[in-house]
Design a protein around this nucleic acid. Structure first.
Lengths: 138, 138
DNA sequence: CTTAGTGCAAACTGTTTGCAGAGGG
DNA sequence: CCCTCTGCAAACAGTTTGCACTAAG
């Protein structure tokens, strides 16, 4: 099966890369629609699937309901905001987890692992402080 | 808001603990139905939510579509089979990941992290070997 | 030309919710 | 008795799919 570089595929890829973020399919759909109003959400889903299968982008397996897609194919870890679900990259020394660290995998053949950090992003932090102030006013 | 120990809640909890596994809501529903046929899936969902909010069980934030629930409340990490999505516990020295290991969290206040191992479970491994043999026969 | 890709609508999966009635404490 | 919990059905969110048509190579 060979890949064709269609117009929609090109725009999807361009928008994802331009965003420098970890977008969901529908976030990307909203952006792509601006330059290609008749594109369908299904096409966005299909292309994200195809592109990640081809290794051109990465599908993020992250806690939470929505899948996110990463224009950055190099291996790295993520942190997500427990409040707004925003995802960002995080520097983290993966070497720390050697295979020696793994105990009894009960018959599993371990093929990999993911480290996922949780936190509160700066904009939610600010939001919370404002809410707190408001509550104190009452 | 206080918790009532209803019949259905008790059975749900009992079945989850009895299973010694990391069940999804509908797997649990199937089991509970045997002793309480008129229970609804919504009740199972509601109770799993309530019980995990109360800290009596744990809701697993695991890659993949379905949520799973763990009768074991103590902190531990998991490994899941990339093929059948089965989830098991894994021994892993969490001390290895000190906060020192974390690089630039770009304004995040880090509250925690999850380590999730991926692999192929023993029964899928066997299944694969059999399939391979069959293919060689042809 | 051939066949991968598209838009649309409809299906599907996992989960949540509104409501009226049931039953724990 | 009160108020949380239940069963049911319907709604919901995110994603996938069948189909006839379009367009890339």
């Amino acid at each position: 099966m060979q890949l064709r570089m269609t117009n929609q595929r090109e725009i999807i890829l361009k928008e994802l890369r331009k965003s420098r973020q970890h977008l969901t399919a529908d976030e990307l759909y909203e952006r792509v629609k601006k330059s290609m109003p008749r594109i369908s959400l299904a096409t966005v889903y299909r292309n994200l699937e195809t592109l990640s299968a081809a290794g051109i982008i990465t599908k993020l397996e992250i806690s939470g309901r929505q899948k996110r897609f990463d224009w950055d194919v190099s291996q790295h870890d993520h942190i997500y905001c427990g409040q707004c679900n925003r995802v960002d990259n995080i520097d983290f020394d993966r070497e720390l987890i050697g295979h020696s660290a793994i105990g009894s995998p009960i018959g599993y053949q371990v093929t990999g692992y993911r480290v996922e950090f949780v936190g509160i992003c700066s904009s939610c932090k600010k939001k919370n402080e404002k809410t707190k102030e408001k509550n104190q006013e009452r």
